[in-house]
Write a protein that binds this DNA or RNA. Structure first.
Lengths: 243, 243
DNA sequence: GCTAAAAACTGGTCATACCAATATTCCAGG
DNA sequence: CCTGGAATATTGGTATGACCAGTTTTTAGC
């Protein structure tokens, strides 16, 4: 008996205006680069006050749909990249210190995944992990490191928890991580010759899971991610030197 | 050689307010669920007019960082609410078996919180935990168990991690948990006389954190949540008999 | 002590005025 | 006729102030 009733909330009239203008833009009646009627004009047309129109336009501007210039007017932007990022992303991108927090949360989730996976992984799933490690070894011999394989390895572990929600949550965090720093991190690995160590880490994690040793798997995962965290911090301070 | 010159734009003061509040949220000075000062108050604090504050809040609301209710106030949302809670809610509602998964994810997050809190909790935060346990003891003497105090205890631990993202993620999961099963679980406790055991659990967790013993704190939290998980499973099978 | 009325916030809307930046118009000088 | 620049109109940005409509808190009465 949860949430049977919808949360009745009086819709603000500024929201109504927002949806109307969004429709106009998506229908092409307001084309990119075109001028939106002035705030006073809109207020008159819609029969509302200017502040209401103004709030609507602020929201549209925050969504990246329009752009206002004082004295100039309000213009429709190309909606090629008008996707409003989710709250977490917008904060992490702006504040590098958040990356450290993010890495830490990921650490908690992944160690937990390793722990659960060691309890429940099927033989088939363990075999998948084994193959991924073998693939890593093959690439490592050439001095290469494929972030794609790395990601698939961690994903496979969480799959082996047989917990849909864990998979979903970790996937969300992992996605953020990937879009923000993964690339730089991979380059860093290759340059600094950490590949052997990384390979060893992954092999140990795989073996602890295969041995059905939850605590060992968690420990191995923790050590691996501690390295990642430290290197990331190093990357951060390097970047600060540039700016 | 494009865009050598930056587009000179006079920064709107509402944008300035937006960034200020974003910083407060990302630094954890404004925690999820907390009230942000009223519009009039903010206007006075910042020395600007209310419309400016209002526009800033509209933008923040559009970004999903805060939520305003007329007459109520403006509240900080969990950053992961839109990305995690909504999809997960639909999952859990369709498949009650998911509750078990949800409890397990919470277990992973909370054990991690306990681990981190034992490393970083300030003396003041430890004192808060101690007071909460004392309050539990007082109520337990009358054979009562207050879910509110329980929740605040766990919340305080995650606050002591000093990790904003961990706080937001756990808050989202916790919220899901609360709306689905928390009430039934509390009744269950009271009937079955588990209160003494619960009290002991919480005291141990608090003591391990106070002793700066990360592994011990994690272990204590794990044992506590294992009990919760088992009792929940018991509840589920009972409910199945009814349906 | 508990309940219900009332008072005090708080966000939502509106009206108005003025400022600052930009567009537009228009006129004088080439 | 064109051209440059000043005067003018338009537009978004900010500030006051007022009132309404829900919430929350306090208070008064039973």
């Amino acid at each position: 008996m949860t949430n049977v009733f919808k949360p009745i909330r009086p819709k603000k009239i500024s929201e109504e205006i927002v949806t109307q203008i969004k429709v106009l833009i998506s229908e092409g009646q307001l084309k990119p680069g075109e001028r939106v009627p002035s705030e006073r004009e809109l207020a008159a047309l819609l029969g509302v006050s200017r502040p209401s129109v103004r709030e609507a336009i602020m929201v549209l501007e925050a969504m990246g749909l329009v752009e206002s210039r004082q004295g100039g007017g309000t213009f429709v932007r190309s909606l090629t990249e008008s996707t409003l990022a989710d709250p977490l992303t917008s904060l992490v991108e702006k504040n590098p210190r958040m990356l450290h927090h993010l890495a830490e949360v990921r650490m908690g989730l992944e160690t937990w995944s390793a722990y659960l996976a060691a309890q429940r992984a099927t033989d088939e799933e363990i075999e998948t992990l084994r193959k991924l490690v073998a693939e890593m070894e093959r690439q490592a011999e050439d001095g290469g490191w494929d972030a794609e394989i790395d990601t698939r390895f961690h994903y496979a572990i969480t799959t082996a928890t047989h917990n849909t929600i864990q998979l979903h949550v970790l996937n969300t965090i992992q996605g953020l991580f990937h879009t923000t720093i993964m690339v730089a991190l991979t380059e860093f690995y290759q340059k600094e010759g950490y590949i052997k160590m990384l390979l060893e880490h992954h092999r140990t994690i795989m073996e602890r899971i295969a041995a059905r040793d939850p605590d060992g798997a968690r420990q191995a995962m923790a050590e691996h991610l501690e390295l990642v965290r430290d290197k990331m911090q190093q990357l951060e301070s390097d970047n600060q030197l540039l700016s």
